[in-house]
Simulated assay, not measured.
Amino acid sequence: MITVLSDTHSRSGNELEGRAKRAVEESDAVVHAGDFVNAAALDAFEAVADRLYAVYGNNATPEVRDRLPPERTFEIEGVRFVLTHGDDRGATGLSLLGRQQAADAVVFGHSHRHAATDAEDVLLLNPGSHADPRGGTPTHAELRVADGEERTDARLVGEIRHRDGSVVETFEIE
Rank of each mutant, 00 (worst) to 15 (best):
D35W: 00
E46M: 05
L94F: 08
A102M: 12
G158T: 01
V167T: 15
G109V: 06
F45V: 09
T73L: 02
P70V: 00
S111N: 00
G90M: 04
T73G: 10
A40R: 14
R163Q: 13
P127T: 05
F81N: 02
A115Q: 10
V168H: 10
D50W: 05
F36T: 08
A23S: 13
A20C: 10
T152L: 13
E142M: 11
V168M: 10
H9D: 10
E150N: 00
A119M: 05
D43E: 15
F36G: 02
E17L: 12
N59E: 13
R89D: 12
G148F: 12
H114Q: 06
E63Y: 02
A33H: 03
V145P: 09
L123I: 14
L83K: 08
G98W: 02
D104M: 06
D104Y: 07
L68F: 11
R155A: 07
I160N: 09
R67W: 03
D43W: 01
I160E: 03
F36P: 03
E15C: 14
F45S: 05
V79T: 12
L125G: 01
N58T: 11
N38F: 11
L97I: 06
V106F: 01
L83T: 01
D50L: 10
N126S: 07
V122N: 02
R155D: 06
L5E: 07
E172G: 09
E149G: 13
A60Q: 05
E63A: 14
A103S: 08
I160A: 06
A49V: 00
Y56S: 05
D132L: 13
V48D: 03
V106R: 09
G86F: 01
Y53N: 01
N58M: 08
D153M: 01
A49R: 08
R163V: 15
S27E: 00
A115N: 09
D132C: 12
V145N: 06
Y53K: 09
V107T: 09
E75R: 12
A20L: 09
N126A: 04
T139C: 08
R51T: 13
E77V: 02
Q101T: 06
N59Q: 12
A29N: 04
E71P: 02
R80K: 12
A54V: 09
L124G: 03
Q101M: 11
I173V: 11
L5M: 09
R155I: 03
V64K: 09
A116C: 08
G93P: 08
S95V: 03
R113W: 00
R19Y: 11
R163I: 14
T139Y: 10
E25K: 12
G165A: 05
G109D: 06
E169H: 13
R113V: 14
T3N: 02
T92N: 09
S166E: 14
V48G: 01
V168Q: 13
F36Y: 14
E77Q: 09
L68D: 07
F74I: 00
H112G: 08
G57T: 06
E46A: 02
A131P: 02
D132P: 03
F81C: 06
D118F: 04
V106P: 02
L52I: 03
E172P: 03
V167A: 05
V64Q: 12
T8M: 08
V122L: 10
N38C: 14
D118H: 11
V167L: 08
G86P: 04
Y56T: 01
E71L: 15
T92L: 13
A20T: 02
K21Q: 13
A103V: 01
S10D: 07
